[in-house]
Design a protein around this nucleic acid. Structure first.
Length: 351
DNA sequence: AAGACGGGGGC
DNA sequence: GCCCCAGTCTT
């Protein structure tokens, strides 16, 4: 007979674990901005900002986003370019596009109100099982367990779970185990306790096992397998691509740019003129800037060739290109490595 | 099940 | 240089 993994720890131990966790949380929880509100919109924004993003990096964006778009209706009514401008530099720009679209859906189909239930949240673009569970539990008390990277790490160690993250069995294990632990507790608080503990104590690499209140319940600590949990697929080699751009500009600060397509890398952001669109030119490049930029799945070797013309508008560009005065640079969202190069480009334009 | 999708920080 | 981060969507 197959024994459920939950039976490896009995009901009593499950209750003991969750109780210890909540006690730990009362002592160690951090004072984070989104813990000061019950506004589902603000909590939703915080969850999306924090997807695959460290709290230290995301916090400023959370404040900036809410200040610029305080309510659902403000976000829905905004231009996508303005939303992306606020999101600039944070990465995973589909999050901003999906937030914008979701806000418009809420206005059109939910009367401009945030839904309460997981089953409604999960319907929105950019809201997956984690975010739907987080908002429904934290803002509305729905007993729906969250499973994020912190929770996976913690649970994989407590049970010394050896299946690869992402496998069907693992998805089921993490979800049902977190849900069992949640049972009988205040959902929003418990979910945050679970994540906080994973983040602050059950860390990647070397966790704080010597001072861990759950140590007596941890199969991984018992076996010494902490470093190998959770089990992840081996990372593949990251290929390099060369992206060549022409900076077609003039001393007054005008510069040709174009908006990238909505889908794919840096979707909806602005970039310079692809070198291929300018290669018919007989102009000589005046400067060259090389930038290596590492993404998760590829390394971009950016080659920026600067062409300073007497008057940039004198060039007949290609379809889709626009000539931007310098005063408009800051209101267009550029990918990080390109925006970082702007000051250097500006320096070369006038010299 | 695997890959695309950013950028930054820790060691 | 490698890992990971309050993940989601597409193929």
């Amino acid at each position: 007979m197959i024994v459920s993994h939950l039976e490896i720890k009995n009901d009593h131990e499950i209750r003991s674990l969750s109780h210890l966790l909540l006690e730990w949380y009362q002592q160690h929880q951090r004072d984070l901005p989104w813990r000061q509100t019950r506004d589902p919109y603000a909590i939703w924004i915080s969850e999306v900002v924090l997807q695959q993003t460290r709290i230290d990096q995301g916090t400023a964006y959370y404040h900036r986003f809410l200040k610029r778009f305080p309510r659902v209706a403000d976000l829905a009514a905004a231009n996508l370019d303005d939303v992306l401008e606020v999101w600039q530099g944070l990465g995973y720009y589909s999050r901003a596009r999906n937030l914008h679209k979701a806000a418009q859906i809420l206005v059109a189909e939910f009367g401009g109100q945030c839904p309460e239930r997981y089953s409604d949240w999960i319907l929105l673009p950019g809201v997956g099982s984690y975010t739907a569970a987080a908002v429904a539990s934290i803002a509305f008390g729905e007993p729906r367990a969250v499973v994020d990277g912190n929770v996976q790490r913690l649970l994989s160690r407590l049970w010394d779970w050896e299946d690869e993250v992402g496998s069907k069995a693992s998805v089921h294990f993490y979800q049902t185990t977190a849900q069992a632990l949640l049972s009988g507790h205040e959902p929003g608080m418990f979910n945050q306790a679970l994540m906080e503990f994973g983040s602050q104590w059950c860390k990647p690499g070397i966790p704080l096992c010597d001072a861990c209140v759950l140590r007596a319940h941890c199969r991984s600590a018992e076996r010494g397998t902490q470093r190998d949990r959770p089990v992840k697929r081996r990372t593949k080699a990251v290929p390099t691509e060369i992206w060549a751009y022409a900076i077609v500009c003039d001393p007054s600060g005008q510069m040709w740019v174009r908006k990238r397509p909505e889908h794919g890398i840096w979707g909806g952001l602005y970039e310079f003129v692809p070198r291929a669109l300018y290669e018919s030119s007989t102009d000589r490049e005046t400067h060259r800037i090389s930038i290596s930029h590492r993404l998760t799945h590829k390394i971009l070797q950016l080659e920026l060739s600067i062409f300073v013309l007497p008057d940039a508008r004198g060039w007949v560009g290609a379809p889709g290109l626009i000539c931007l005065p310098q005063s408009d640079w800051s209101v267009r969202a550029f990918p990080r490595p390109l925006s970082a190069a702007l000051p250097q480009i500006q320096g070369r334009m006038s010299s």
